[in-house]
Design a protein around this nucleic acid. Structure first.
Length: 472
RNA sequence: GGGCCCUUCGUCUAUCGGUUAGGACAUCAGAUUUUCAAUCUGGGAAGACGGGUUCGACUCCCGUAGGGCCUACCA
């Protein structure tokens, strides 16, 4: 149940300062699931008030990332910086009502105070908080506007995941809400935007838990209704440390390039830090029906590549082959491979027989390589070594035997191969290796009958012929 | 330093005072087998530590240890 009568509105609010972290993706997923569960709206806000670090390219990365994941916001994104005037207005309102004050501390003074405050184990204090306003005389001097936070009592963040978290107000410092250059800061902008956008549930990273207290007092000063807060734990690397580049990947785009399917990512990410009994593999409909932020686990979760691979494999198995073929071609294209007109057809024949073993699209592409190779195939040294007088002769007889096969499909071919083995008085092991070698060039072909079926009669027999004529 | 959060198999989790502590991934063993994989069967594997409360604690309370977040005119 939502906590108020207002229709649920959630949002993901990333800052465009680089890549889109997988943790951000999971937070977006949780927001999306929660909104969908209650038939509410899921919004996107780009927090670009840091003019130094925000870039347009990074905005695109976020848009692309959410799009790829299939988490489509219900409204066009709100750009925070574009709303700076509104934020400034609120800052001035706070100033007028005495809930904020001008602070003229210099950078050096602030640094000194910070040091003392730390030594004394208390929050930073500005001497300007209690100074009488001097009728605008020195407003031209460089200064910031600080929020005048309460010094007494406590602020309770009633977090949906962590439960009630109590902060002593005296521990909270008077945060800057308007910089000396007139640009609003994050903590002010978030409150104003979340209020204006009608956000009912702020579901965000654990790292904002303390901010929730600071922001709560601003909501109160403005007389605005507080949203419900839910702080989800961060995602850590396999070693328990904060997820970073050295763990293999941390950006959504990297997972896409590695060949993970978006639906697999959604399933995995949903399962990471949240669960519904013993259910492991489930689709969006089920996730939406089952999801509740209150069930999100309190502890940070580690990224587990094995499980991600396993889930991805599951979704590759049930994925449409044409879609997989397109994805394989895309992957191959990124590697600089020149496409051929019949690639699509060859892939559609090969994918069904190899997809079960593919953990990623990149692996799937590798497994399909044998089907895409063009005649005459170049045999690796290892493959060529499998062809001697005896095996070549046998392959020749096999080719002739297969040539008489009318039904060119895997089950029939398997029977034919077995019959051939019997007629030769040997086991499949005697010619399986050489056959695989000439069919694939590098011995990477899958199941023999399947490979023959995927390649088709002409291509299969042609490859055998090519190899035999060359080894002579 | 201060404030706050967290702690069940290697990993993700179930349990929400009474269970042989369950499942999944990984792992190990066996089966199958034309390489690899896949598949099937089976096994091992956990309540950080120390105190309470209780007839009874993984579940509640306190402490310790360890990990994390915040402590910016970043978000």
């Amino acid at each position: 149940m939502p906590d108020s009568d207002r229709p649920v509105v959630t949002r993901i609010a990333p800052s465009p300062t680089g890549s889109m972290h997988i943790g951000t993706a999971r937070t977006a997923l949780f927001n999306w699931l929660y909104a969908r569960h209650y038939g509410g709206r899921f919004l996107l806000r780009i927090e670009d008030t840091d003019r130094e670090r925000s870039t347009e390219a990074a905005v695109q990365v976020i848009l692309d990332g959410l799009d790829w994941l299939g988490l489509h916001p219900d409204e066009p994104p709100v750009f925070q910086f574009a709303r700076a005037e509104r934020h400034r207005q609120i800052a001035l309102e706070l100033l007028a009502s005495g809930r904020a004050y001008r602070c003229y501390m210099t950078v050096d003074e602030l640094a000194a105070e910070r040091e003392i405050a730390r030594a004394e184990g208390r929050a930073v204090r500005s001497p300007w908080r209690d100074r009488e306003p001097t009728a605008g005389s020195n407003h031209n001097l460089s200064h910031v506007i600080r929020f005048r936070g309460p010094r007494e009592g406590e602020t309770v963040v009633d977090d949906l995941i962590k439960g009630p978290v109590v902060f002593q107000n005296k521990e909270l410092d008077d945060l800057v809400i308007l910089r000396s250059d007139g640009v609003p800061t994050y903590n002010l902008a978030v409150v104003v935007d979340d209020h204006d956008m009608g956000i009912t549930h702020v579901i965000r990273g654990d790292d904002h838990l303390t901010n929730a207290a600071r922001q709560s007092v601003i909501y109160q000063a403005m007389g605005w209704e507080l949203p419900a807060f839910a702080h989800v734990p961060l995602i850590h690397g396999p070693d328990g440390a904060k997820l970073s580049k050295r763990h293999g990947a941390q950006a959504v785009g990297e997972f896409a390039d590695m060949g993970f399917l978006p639906e697999a990512m959604r399933n995995y990410l949903a399962r990471l830090g949240w669960g519904h009994g013993d259910d492991e593999l489930f689709g969006d409909e089920q996730a939406i029906a089952w999801f509740d932020v209150r069930d999100v686990v309190k502890a940070p979760a580690r990224l587990d590549w094995n499980k991600l691979h396993h889930i991805n494999n599951h979704y590759i198995r049930i994925a449409d082959d044409e879609r997989l073929a397109d994805l394989v071609l895309e992957t191959l294209g990124r590697r600089g491979r020149t496409p051929h007109p019949d690639d699509q057809a060859r892939l559609l024949a090969a994918i069904p027989i190899v997809k079960d073993g593919a953990k990623t699209i990149v692996e799937l592409a590798d497994l399909c390589a044998f089907a895409l190779a063009r005649r005459p195939l170049v045999l690796t040294e290892k493959s060529a070594a499998l062809l001697n007088e005896e095996t070549s002769a046998r392959l020749g007889r096999l080719a002739a035997w297969l040539g008489e096969t009318h039904e060119w499909d895997a089950p029939t071919l398997l029977v034919r191969i077995r019959e051939f083995a019997a007629s030769e008085g040997v086991g499949l092991g005697k010619f399986g290796g050489p056959l695989r070698a000439v069919l694939s060039g590098d011995g990477s072909a899958p199941d023999l009958a399947g490979a023959l079926a995927a390649l088709g009669r002409d291509e299969s027999l042609g490859r055998i012929e090519d190899a035999l004529s060359r080894s002579q």
